[in-house]
Every structure is written in C-alpha cells, then in structure tokens.
Simulated scan of single mutants.
Amino acid sequence: MNTCYPAVFEPQEPLGFVVQFLDIEEAFTQGDTFDECVFNGAEVLTALLQIYLEDGREIPRPSENVKDAYHIAPDARVQSALLIRWARGDRSLAEIARTLETSWPSAQRLENPHHWPSLKQLDKVASVLGKKLVLSFE
C-alpha cells in the first residue's frame, strides 16, 4: 500500500511554486525552492491527514502513475495509522483487539496519528490483517 500522494508544482512569478495535492483538494502550500515545497507539502499533508484520521473521515488513496507529479509522504505516525486503517477495511477495532488479544483502547491507538506504535506492534497487526510489514528508506 502506498502512502505517497501526488502533488503538482506550479511555478510562480517572480520565484517559487504553488504545490497542490491532486487527491486532497484542501492540501496545498507554496515555497521558494523545490526542497522547501517538498518540506512544506509533507507538513500540510501530515496535518490534514491527522485531522481526517481524528474525525474518522474517509481518506482517499493516493492516485498512481500521475504524469509530471511529485509524490510526497506524510510523517511516519500518519503513514502507520493510514496503513492500518486501510488494511483493516471493514473489520471493527473490537475484532482487531480480540484477535491481537489486547484491549479496545490499545487497538484504537494503532490508528491514532499521535501514537508511535512499535515495530513489534506493527508486525503483529500486519500479521493479524493478513499482511506483511515491509520497511523502506527513501
């Protein structure tokens, strides 16, 4: 599952860019340099996805194979919460808690964008959801 969202960078005069995420209309920012735009994009994407997760809103999956787009990921906490929510699908948190042999609040924290789950927790929940935990650095 991919958590990198495509964004387009529109040049502005006299310098800089406006950054617009294609899958999340409210997510946009700007910067004077490409690196600043990527940093600001990750910040705004993280903040909006945190709000979506906290409010229980549906979160669109990132579009793939978007020509001329730069793909930006939210921070690791938001990524893990997103991946667990998407992998869980229609299964309730209560069902996940029972399968993990833990409490409902502990299972709920796995989808909390302010919580840092351990690798052991992520690996266990991935297994319960029929998935495999794969890590990468980019």
Rank of each mutant, 00 (worst) to 15 (best):
W104G: 07
A81T: 01
Q30A: 15
G41D: 05
T33L: 09
L53Q: 03
E111V: 04
R98S: 12
H115C: 03
E10R: 11
L135A: 12
W104P: 11
K67A: 08
P74L: 01
P62K: 06
G16Y: 03
D68A: 07
V125A: 00
F137R: 15
K131M: 14
D68H: 12
I51Y: 03
E43K: 07
Q108L: 00
E101L: 04
Y52Q: 10
L15E: 09
F17L: 13
A107P: 02
D23W: 02
R77L: 09
V134G: 08
N65A: 06
C37S: 07
R77A: 07
G41S: 07
L135E: 06
A27E: 00
G31Y: 13
D68V: 04
L119K: 08
I96Y: 04
D123E: 11
V128T: 01
T33Q: 13
D90S: 14
D123V: 05
S136V: 11
E13L: 11
Y70P: 06
K120G: 13
V128R: 00
P11E: 04
Y5P: 06
E138P: 14
G89Y: 00
H71Q: 05
V18H: 09
L93S: 10
L119W: 09
N112C: 07
H115N: 10
L133Q: 05
P62N: 01
V18I: 11
L135N: 12
F28C: 07
K131F: 15
N112T: 06
G16Q: 04
E13C: 01
L22W: 10
Y52T: 05
E10V: 14
K67H: 06
E10G: 10
T29A: 10
Q121F: 05
G130P: 07
V134L: 03
E58Y: 11
G56P: 00
H115Q: 08
N40L: 09
R91W: 12
F28R: 15
T33K: 03
A47P: 07
F21Y: 11
L53C: 12
E54K: 07
H71W: 04
W86N: 05
E43V: 10
P60S: 00
S92F: 01
T29V: 05
L22G: 09
E58V: 12
A42N: 15
I72P: 14
I84H: 03
M1V: 09
K132F: 09
H114Y: 06
Q108F: 01
H71Y: 07
Q20S: 13
L83I: 09
N65K: 11
E95G: 11
Y70G: 14
A107S: 03
P6M: 03
W86K: 05
L48W: 12
R91H: 15
E138H: 11
R109N: 15
I96C: 06
E64A: 10
E101D: 03
R57Q: 05
E138N: 13
D123T: 07
R57L: 10
I96L: 05
P105T: 03
A107K: 00
F21D: 08
L49Q: 04
A97S: 13
E43D: 08
D68S: 14
C4L: 13
S106H: 15
G31N: 08
H114V: 06
E26P: 08
N40Q: 12
R91F: 14
F34M: 12
A94T: 15
P117T: 02
E58I: 13
Q12K: 14
N2P: 12
L119R: 08
V66N: 01
A7K: 02
G56M: 00
A76R: 13
D75W: 02
G130K: 02
A97V: 12
